[in-house]
Nucleic acid binder design. Structure first.
Lengths: 240, 240
DNA sequence: CCCGGTATGATTGTATTCAAAATTCATAGA
DNA sequence: TCTATGAATTTTGAATACAATCATACCGGG
């Protein structure tokens, strides 16, 4: 599911209009536009600091300025765009300190997820996480970086999902969406990796023990440990 | 006065920072409208489930539909409004389970704040918190409920501020803004109160010890302990 | 009397228009 | 040649116009 607004209640709705070929899409135009713009930003097609040209985008999307501008306001509220009075908007850039702040918040959200997950997670869920962990180790040893990131991500998302807290998940998704490019493409040194693997194993143990408080503390430290890695990568990837 | 738009959604980029020199605050109309609508919602003038009538509000604010609709999209992204396809919007109502989820997230955010605060908080800051704590106890003993809530709130906000993490603070502000009416008007039983006071004192101790991990755990439990109180009050205050 | 169908008005979603601010480009002056 | 000034063009912020959808009232039938 894509990054959507965090409001639990807002949904994009019951779609009831039948369109000729396919499905029933009763989405808002501005929502569709917001999704496409998020994708453009995430993919890097629209780079940080890049100005938004309304005329260009309306032509590209084949819509008028009204829904586009509504989408811009939404993305600005989400933090993906910055509004420049009388000069439109631009893709938000993240400063070093903002990135660090975001990492701490993400660490806190994951800690919360771990704590909550211990309440309702099933042994089967934990097994699935452990399976991903093993696959992650295999991928790393085999030099399969894409596989490594994929499994690592699944582990964290699995714990987040196990928290069974949609508000938490939405905030997490939105926040991590802003740094995803950095987060899942960072290179780790062997000892950073060894530490991460060890922490993952402790996480699984604490999940099995259903020790929420300890897991929360561990997860905070775990994410915190990744901070320097991501920060270093960020400098390379995004520049300033 | 809460003149800022908070982006709760997640994130908050400074939406509308006006830095250049003088205080020429040339705000967006939609921002101004969003602020006024937030106030209407918070004050209860617009109650949960109440439909938004664009015509009525455009007349009330003396603006056209365009900026109003942009403001509506913003508030929907923040979770304060729900969008109803082809039927406009209404003030969001919070279900019991949503309230519980939000309390857990808030607990996590406050735990994170406590953890971070231990890094940079000064003895003077801690003294200020302790002063508020004592004043809170006095207010409670004197039956001054408003004073009690005011000081309690200042304690929590003081720790949040001491985290020196604006992203964390913005998310916290936005989320707690959605339940404020419930949170700071709840009645506690004597033993609930005794526990809260005791926890506050432990919090101050842990702050002085700069023990972030322990403080995080305690704060999570502290907020969690307030959950039933707030939940009970919510049922009374908001109905369903 | 109650129920379902239809028509009318109201409200929303989107497009277009208007005016002000900003950017661009060329030119004049040092 | 370089800088600074200013008009023309572009782009934005807001208002208005148009079309589709929804809600309600009315009417006829059972």
């Amino acid at each position: 599911m894509r990054g959507r607004s965090l409001c639990p209640g807002v949904l994009c709705g019951p779609m009831n209009k039948i369109e000729p070929g396919i499905g029933i899409s009763r989405r808002y135009l501005h929502d569709e536009v917001a999704d496409r713009m998020r994708e453009l930003i995430r993919s890097g097609e629209m780079e940080p600091k890049a100005r938004i040209n309304e005329g260009e985008l309306t032509e590209r999307f084949g819509i008028s300025r009204t829904p586009l501008r509504e989408a811009i306001k939404i993305l600005a509220t989400e933090g993906l765009l910055e509004l420049l009075p009388n000069r439109g908007a631009r893709v938000a850039s993240i400063s070093e300190t903002e990135l660090e702040e975001m990492m701490e918040v993400i660490a806190g959200l994951e800690a919360t997820a771990g704590d909550l997950a211990c309440r309702t997670i099933t042994d089967g869920d934990i097994d699935a996480i452990e399976t991903d962990h093993r696959a992650m180790v295999v991928a790393w040893k085999g030099g399969d970086e894409a596989g490594y990131f994929s499994h690592n991500r699944r582990i964290h998302e699995g714990i987040m999902a196990a928290s069974r807290n949609t508000i938490l998940s939405n905030i997490y998704e939105s926040l991590s969406g802003r740094i995803q490019r950095s987060r899942y493409s960072a290179h780790q040194t062997p000892d950073q990796w060894a530490r991460a693997v060890s922490e993952h194993e402790q996480m699984i143990e604490l999940l099995r023990a259903r020790d929420g408080a300890a897991l929360a503390t561990l997860m905070r430290e775990h994410i915190r440990g990744k901070k320097p890695v991501i920060a270093a990568n960020y400098g390379d990837a995004e520049g300033v």
